Structure formats: C-alpha cells, structure tokens
Amino acid sequence: MNEEVENAFLPMTSVSSGKGSLVIHDVYCYTNQIVNICFINIPNNKWVLIDAGMPKSAEKIIQGAEKQFGKGSWPEAIILTHGHFDHIGSVEALAELWNIPVYAHQLEFPYLTGEQDYPPGDPSVDGGLVSEMSPLFPNHSIDITEKLNPLPADGTVPLLSDWKWIHTPGHTPGHISLFREKDQTLIAGDAFVTVDQESLYKVMTQKKEINGPPAYFTMDWDEAKVSVQTLRDLQPELAITGHGVPMSGNELTRELNKLAENFDTLARPDSKT
C-alpha cells in the first residue's frame, strides 16, 4: 500500500457504515464508512466487486462479502469507477489476497500506476466542513500495475454481460458509471451522489438528496455537467451512487432531471463559474 494513502487523514463515518442491502436481485450495496461498494452476482455463484472502499478496510469488506456469499468467497474481478482514495483504499490488499484482475478506464491509469497524483482537496468550493477538511484527504496515486487492466473499448464490462460502462468524466478524467439497460439500473460512482457530501452532518446522517459530484475533488465542472446529463438521458429506474442511499422510481427521475437542468446553480461551486 502506498504509505501516504495508508497513513493519511481519513474522514468521518456514517450511520450506514457496515450495513448492506440487496438493492435489486443481483446487486448488493455495502457501505464502508462513507462510501458505497457493490457486489454483483454473476452465473455459477460467482460475483464481481465494484470499487474497493476506504484504506485499512479490507477485513471489513471481506466480512461484508462473506455475509452475502458465504465464508471464503471471493470475486472474479474488481472494477473501479475511479481512483480516489475512498474508492480504491483497499484495492491493493484485496487484489493481492484474492489474486484477481482490476479494471479501470485508461484515463485513470496514471493515478493507479504511481505516475500522477490527483489535485489536493479544494476547501474553497462551498464552505462545508468536509470541504474544509478535504486538503487533509489522501490525493496520492497508488501502483497496482501488475493487476491493472483497461476496460474494453467497446463499452462491455468483463464478466458482466448485461452491463455496459459509460465514460462519465469530470469528477476525474477516467471516471466511469455502469448501466444495465434491461432493468435501467445505474451504478453512478461519484458522477452524482445522493447526499450532500460537503456537509459533515448530512454525510453522517445520510440525508437523501441528489447532488452533483463531491465538489472538493471534482476536476472539470464542464465535463461533470455533461456526464450528469448523459446519465439523466439513460432514464435510470434505480441509481446506486458512491455516496448516499440508493434512489429509484419517480423520485430519481424528478431529482436527476432537476440536477441535469440546473447543474450550474445546484452543483457547480461559485468559485468554478
């Protein structure tokens, strides 16, 4: 593990930490402190892990997986929505333990091969306490070159034949979301979230409300806006986001459309206009 990531300041937890639920028949959502990861069932009693949670959380993630799939169960692969510390915190330990491949978008590779660090957290984006703490959050790259593989260029997802990956940049250059057309299920990563991620109180209580990507780490607001509009146009029936609780049905349609149509006022920080 990159020592700077391993030893860096870690943010708060939430009331959902350690809890999981079967959101749809084959997608289990598990909350690791403040971030959601997904376990997706595939045929022959196998599964795929989406994102890898916080640093020092490998044991908790394993316990969450074994609760769902049984003792000694491990996934066939890990697929990353992007490389921020709260989504890849335990990927090195888990990929090594399970000896499985990790897939990510090619534009995310510099942050996953030790070549480039993300910009530090921006405390000026909205004045929220989490934003103010964000310069202390890990922004360092990791190096998982030996396990890392690019997602197929045709949008297919390894091992997940019903899913496609969609490039949704803005929060990071290589951010992706996953979508299954047959039941309109979306795993959005941090392209948008269902909690005000800048508010310490709302993060801790997990108050449900659609927001743009976590502002303190978002790198390109023009691209982020287009990505939200792209996901809105898919008309998802269920959205599992990287932070917050799943949202579905009319509530999701209404709130995601509102965010897409009013992104500049609802999501883009004043300092980024």
Rank of each mutant, 00 (worst) to 15 (best):
T218S: 15
T218L: 06
T218H: 09
T218K: 08
T218G: 06
T218V: 12
D220G: 11
D220I: 11
D220C: 10
W221G: 02
W221Q: 12
W221P: 03
D222R: 13
E223W: 12
A224D: 09
A224R: 06
K225E: 12
V226S: 10
V226M: 14
S227M: 07
S227Y: 06
V228A: 00
V228T: 10
Q229P: 02
Q229M: 09
Q229S: 06
Q229Y: 05
Q229R: 15
Q229W: 04
Q229E: 07
L231V: 05
R232V: 04
R232M: 00
D233V: 00
D233Y: 02
D233K: 03
L234P: 00
L234H: 00
L234I: 02
L234A: 01
L234M: 03
L234V: 01
L234Y: 00
Q235C: 00
Q235Y: 01
Q235E: 08
P236L: 03
P236Y: 02
E237Q: 05
L238Y: 10
L238Q: 11
L238W: 07
I240H: 06
G242Y: 08
G242D: 04
H243K: 09
H243W: 10
H243D: 08
H243L: 06
H243R: 13
G244K: 07
G244T: 08
G244F: 11
G244M: 10
V245I: 14
V245P: 02
P246Y: 15
P246I: 10
P246G: 09
M247R: 09
M247T: 13
M247D: 01
M247F: 08
S248E: 15
S248C: 04
G249F: 10
G249I: 01
G249M: 13
G249E: 12
N250T: 13
N250W: 03
N250R: 02
